[in-house]
Design a protein around this nucleic acid. Structure first.
Lengths: 207, 207
DNA sequence: ATAACTTTGTGAAGAATTTCACAAGCGCGG
DNA sequence: CCGCGCTTGTGAAATTCTTCACAAAGTTAT
C-alpha cells in the first residue's frame, strides 16, 4: 500500500469519533458532507481520505454508519486491545493513569513506573507504582505495546531507550524533548507549550 | 505580513524550547544545523522558518542564542503574561490547573469553573472552583484571554460559546468535539484519542 | 591581507496535500 | 422503466510546504 499521510490518519480518527456520535443518535447513514462538518473539514477531503483505503460508500446515499465505523476501526488497528505502560508517576502520569478515555478506546494501562523511592509501591486504583529498575525484567510478562512518557526532560531520552529495549514499539511522549529512537518505533509528541504558544501567536497577530 | 503557516509556528515554539536548553548549557551561539537537530527537523527548514520573520543570524557564525530567544519570544507574543481560565473541574481540569508548565511559560491560571454543585467552592491551591453561572459576570474583572475547555462532550459547544461571550479570544480544547466559533477566536485541539489511534495505526501497519 | 572555512538567506525545484469539478452510480416517485 | 435528484470516487488543477543548492557574507588562521 502506498504511504498514507499522517494528516489523513488523524482525520480518520476524527471521523470515527464523529461516527460514534452519529450512531448514538440512531442515524444509519451519513454523507461525506455531514462527516466533514463534524470532523471540521470538507466533503472532498473526507472522500479523498477514505479513497486511500477503498470505496465504502453508495452513490446517491452516502456511507453506512455501521460499516464505515467497522472499516475505520479496522484501518486504525482498533480490532484489538493495546497494552500501555506509563513511565513517570508524577502529576501528568497520574492524570493519564486515571483517564477513562484510555480503556474506553481500547488502550489498557497495565503498569506505571517511577524512579522515586517515595512513589514506588503507591497504589493507584488497581495499579501499583513499580520501580523503573524492573522495566526490562517485567517486559516479558507485561508485553507492553505502547509507552507513555511523562518524566523530567533530563531523563526522557534515556527512558525512551529503555522502553524500546524492553520491547515497546510506540511512544506517546509528553516531554518537550525530541526523542531519537529506531525508525521502526512510532513516536507521537504531545507538547502543551507548543499549543499554548500557538494560541499566544494567534492572539498577538490577529485578536 | 503574509500568512504564516501553522506548522512554522509550531516549529518556532520547538526552537524556543531548544534555545532554552542550549542557553542552560552556557552556549552563546547556535547554528541552524544544531537547532534542527534539537527541534527534529532540517537546517534548511530552520532557516526558512526564521526567514519568514526577518534575518537574525550571522553568516559563518550562526545565531546569537540570547538574541534569537528574544526574537522568537517576541514573534510568539510571549512578551507578556496571558490570563487563562479552565472550564470544567474534572480530572483533566484538575491536572491542568496544577501543571507548573502553564505559569512557567507565561500562562497564569486565574479561574476554574464547573457546573457541578459538589465541586463548586472546592479549594485548589490558591484557586477556588467557581460556579459556571458566574462566567459572564466575572469576565470583566478577570479579563481571561484564553479558556481551557475540559467539560463533557455534550456541553463543549455551549461552553465555548459562553466563553467567547465572556470575552475569551482563544480556546485550548481538550474535548473531542469540533467547536464552531467566530473566525477571530483561535482554537487549538488536544485530542488524546487521535494520538493513540495514530500510534495504533502505526503499530498495525508497520511494527 | 589573503586564503580557507563556515554558515546564512533565499530563489527555484520538487513533493505533498488540498480543492475542484464532473462523470458515473444509486434510489425513488410516478 | 424512465427521469430526476443526490452523492460518491477520482483525475486534474491549484495550492501549500519542504528540500535543494549556491552566492554572499562573516570568521579564523597565518
Amino acid at each position: 500500500m502506498k504511504r498514507v499521510a499522517e494528516s489523513t490518519i488523524r482525520r480518520l480518527s476524527l471521523y470515527l469519533t464523529a461516527l460514534e456520535e452519529i450512531d448514538a443518535r440512531g442515524t444509519r447513514t451519513v454523507s461525506s458532507e455531514e462527516l466533514a462538518q463534524l470532523g471540521g473539514t470538507t466533503s472532498a477531503q473526507v472522500r479523498k481520505d477514505l479513497s486511500v483505503f477503498g470505496s465504502f460508500g453508495k452513490r446517491g446515499l452516502g456511507y453506512s454508519v455501521a460499516e464505515l465505523t467497522a472499516r475505520l476501526r479496522s484501518i486504525l488497528g482498533l480490532g484489538r486491545r493495546w497494552r500501555v505502560c506509563i513511565i513517570g508517576a508524577g502529576k501528568v502520569g497520574a492524570a493519564l493513569a486515571q483517564y477513562p478515555g484510555f480503556p474506553e478506546r481500547g488502550f489498557d494501562i497495565v503498569a506505571v513506573y517511577d524512579a522515586d523511592a517515595a512513589r514506588i509501591g503507591e497504589r493507584w486504583g488497581d495499579l501499583r507504582v513499580r520501580d523503573i529498575a524492573t522495566l526490562e525484567t517485567d517486559a516479558r510478562d507485561l508485553a507492553c505495546d505502547i509507552a507513555v512518557l511523562a518524566v523530567p526532560a533530563s531523563a526522557a531520552q534515556r527512558m525512551a531507550e529503555r522502553a524500546v529495549a524492553a520491547g515497546v514499539r510506540a511512544i506517546l511522549n509528553f516531554v518537550p524533548v525530541q526523542l531519537s529512537v529506531p525508525r521502526n518505533v512510532a513516536v507521537r509528541n504531545v507538547n502543551m507549550a507548543v499549543e499554548l504558544e500557538a494560541l499566544s501567536f494567534a492572539l498577538t497577530n490577529r485578536g
